[in-house]
């Protein structure tokens, strides 16, 4: 005790080994001395503005009327040329109609097949539910077969638990536990 006081007295006068508190104070003083403003000037305004300009999407300019006119004319001419080329190789009217009907028939057949598949898929959950219901109906009859064993099991549990309780309570009444003492 005297030694500690003596050491503190020495510490306070800066004569002895510094204490933990002194070390803490030095650490904190040093950290707080890092406070302050940047010692040189910087200017990032221009740079930030350039970066921001890049972020913002460029405005859309209106398309001038003459450009629009030219584009329409080119597209129109292209469409006429394309139609003329197609007209030359156009199938006969009758063949076209027959092909159209054949296509519709084929599509109908495919639809029927797909519908059958879809129906069988949709019925699957109902089949599963029916199976589950049958299983649930079976459970009580299965349980009734094991009923005698269950009754014997419950009776045994009851006997074991009662026996244990009686044994423990009886022992405690016969040999009361000693009060624990606190060891210093």
């Amino acid at each position: 005790m005297i030694g500690r006081r003596f050491r503190r007295a020495l510490d306070e006068r800066g004569l002895g080994q510094p204490s933990a508190e002194q070390a803490d104070r030095w650490i904190i003083d040093e950290l707080t001395s890092l406070r302050g403003q940047i010692p040189y000037e910087i200017d990032v305004r221009r740079r930030v503005m350039i970066e921001i300009e890049r972020l913002v999407p460029q405005d859309r300019h209106e398309v001038p009327a003459w450009q629009l006119g030219w584009a329409t004319a080119i597209v129109g001419v292209g469409a006429i040329v394309l139609l003329a080329l197609l007209w030359g190789s156009w199938p006969e009217w009758r063949t076209g109609v027959e092909n159209g009907f054949a296509l519709m028939r084929g599509l109908a057949e495919v639809s029927v097949t797909l519908a059958g598949l879809l129906l069988s898929l949709l019925s699957l959950p109902f089949k599963m539910l029916a199976g589950l219901r049958d299983l649930l109906i079976e459970v009580p009859s299965m349980a009734s077969r094991v009923k005698p064993f269950a009754v014997v099991g419950v009776a045994l549990c009851y006997l074991i638990m009662t026996g244990t309780i009686v044994g423990v309570v009886g022992r405690d009444l016969r040999y009361p536990a000693t009060t624990p003492t606190r060891e210093d």
């Binding site: 890092l34 406070r35 302050g36 403003q37 940047i38 010692p39 910087i42 200017d43 990032v44 305004r45 930030v48 503005m49 921001i52 300009e53 913002v56």
Partner: peptide
Amino acid sequence: DRQAFGELVERYQRLVASVAWR
């Protein structure tokens, strides 16, 4: 108004720079 943000940059660039410097 992007120039308004430029004004904010002007005002606070030193504060941000000081944090980075520290």
